[in-house]
Amino acid sequence: MTIARTLDDACAALAEHPQARLLAGGTDLMVGVNRGQVGLDHVVVLDRVDELRAWHRTGDDLLLGAGLTYADLGRGDLPGLLPALAQAARTVGSPQIRNAGTLGGNLATASPAGDTLPVLAALDATVLLRSATGSRELPLAGFVTGVKQNALEPDELIEAVRVPVLDGPQEFLKVGTRNAMVISVVSLALVVDRGGRGVRVGLGSVAPVPLRAAEAEAHLADHVGWDDGSPPAPDAVDRFVELVAGAARPIDDHRGSADYRRHAVGVLARRALHRAFPGGDR
């Protein structure tokens, strides 16, 4: 086992032990270990790498260290800068899980139900990867390649995620069986970019990978009163909801049917839009 203190330590250990498993908060990995589904040969422990648990603002971008926990995402200035990400973090698991689980772990696990993923999709996030031999960047869509599949090479780790600071309201909503400790049946992030006069919508749990509702976004851009912030007219809202539901590619599983998910994601779309542009007809 390697308890890394710096990113270089961690990368060197990965280079030396190609079979090594990275361990951050353990909230995904240890479940598999406890069930005997994941064997450990060498472990590289990341939770003492200070560089990974930090965030920085550079101009209009934020660099979020992969080791930030959900509790971190809800603390200090971050909720003001990234409201939707903070909201998503607040819905994850329980206090125990939020104290341990990390942004990087959520990305690497790449579950269709990962709650940060629709937010990162809506923000057009970039994932920064690093190994002993170099670093590279991938757009989120290039990083999450399928159900629990990602583009990491065996010697690579996620160093950080880059997202923009946008001017405008943001919402994250999820449907589950209760408020705490629940895996999303569907989730949706809506972020408004007043500067770019656009609204971006990320969808979770309705496809193998996080999706954007591109048609719905394009439609909405023409129907928001950008100069006075007035909400879209009711028929434009209905069309938006229809387009969001149409963008979903859900399946039937034990958590919900495809039909239910398509319906529910439309409900979330309407609710998020109403919250972002209050005053309009629901």
Partner: peptide, 26 residues
């Protein structure tokens, strides 16, 4: 043993966590 029930909760450096999800050696 999967972090759902909280009956194994302990404090590690003052933070509440599920001890079932902490790798002991870490």
């Amino acid at each position: 043993e999967e972090g759902e029930c909280g009956s194994c909760s302990v404090q590690v450096d003052g933070e509440l966590v599920c001890s079932c999800l902490v790798l002991a050696a870490s």
